[in-house]
Design a protein around this nucleic acid. Structure first.
Lengths: 161, 161
DNA sequence: CCACGCCTTAACGCTTACGTCAACGTCAGA
DNA sequence: TCTGACGTTGACGTAAGCGTTAAGGCGTGG
């Protein structure tokens, strides 16, 4: 019985925003938001009775996370999908924990979730290391330039040109 | 009088390598190397008399830099082109410095080069900062998971299940 | 009540960044 | 000298990631 979530539009929920606002706040376009939803990267947001999307703060947070995965870590949308699917699993297991079922099962699932998170963490750390190496190189270049600038400047002054 | 650079192929320069090796060492494909060259991201390498490309160690270094710009900083090839064009300018000015001309001119050019480098450095630093924020978030998540795992484990032991 | 603005889905278009032939030269070894 | 591996330049193909347009629904202010 697929119940379509709706929200009172009688100013009840001020934190719910239109796709326009969502796009502005996340730096993506409306088209991109719909596209990501279509791909399953974003779970379908709430709708008003008229059918228009209403994004919750959690939705916004998730959108920002997807964007970070893409822009910072350079993940493809496919890769992001596997990540968010994993996060879905996390949510489910949290619900499970609250619903109280087999503890061993939960333990296994939580370990998987932790492993995924650890993996992502490792990737981020690796990228940071690479970028710090790049930073060093650039800093060295810059120092070299500044040194030469000093030299040339002294030459000019010495000459009194 | 466009003189085509050539290199003795009588084993004279062991540091010069074929496009195959260049691709292997840089992690790009041969096609990509030719494509980048076509776009002006790489300066045309030396050739043997037969027309085959020979990459110098400097060429290889440049290729790796282009790759870093793409993969680490997520630059488009267009953006990379502006960067390498700027670096071209640096090289030219270095040649100028050796050729000894107007010192003031050189000074101005060197300042520009330094500015460009500083700009790139700033971008790298910003990305590092963003990624460290992301790292913190992930670390926090992971800690939360591990904590919960401990809890569940104790529950299991306490029960003697 | 109707015009205007914002939303919807569906479909096609387009750019980037290469992959993949095809057709042909080159070079080293048997 | 022939053969087979490797290289060359086009030219066309293609997947990802959206942009853009079409055709229409909803609701709100004048």
């Amino acid at each position: 019985m697929a119940v379509t979530k709706t929200v009172e539009r009688t100013e009840a929920a001020p934190e719910y925003i239109s796709i326009r606002e969502a796009a502005e706040r996340t730096g993506l376009t409306q088209r991109t938001l719909r596209y990501y939803e279509e791909l399953g990267l974003l779970k379908p947001p709430a709708r008003v009775s008229g059918g228009q999307r209403l994004y919750s703060p959690e939705d916004i947070a998730r959108i920002k996370q997807v964007r970070r995965l893409k822009e910072l870590l350079n993940f493809s949308l496919d890769e992001i999908k596997t990540v968010v699917d994993a996060e879905e699993a996390k949510q489910h297991l949290r619900a499970d924990v609250k619903a109280e079922r087999s503890l061993k099962r939960k333990l296994k699932q939580m370990r998987e979730a932790a492993e995924i998170t650890a993996h992502q963490l490792a990737m981020v750390e690796e990228k940071i290391a690479q970028m710090q190496a790049m930073k060093k190189e650039l800093a060295r270049d810059l120092a070299g330039f500044n040194e030469r600038i000093q030299q040339v400047q002294q030459e000019i002054e010495g000459r009194g040109e």
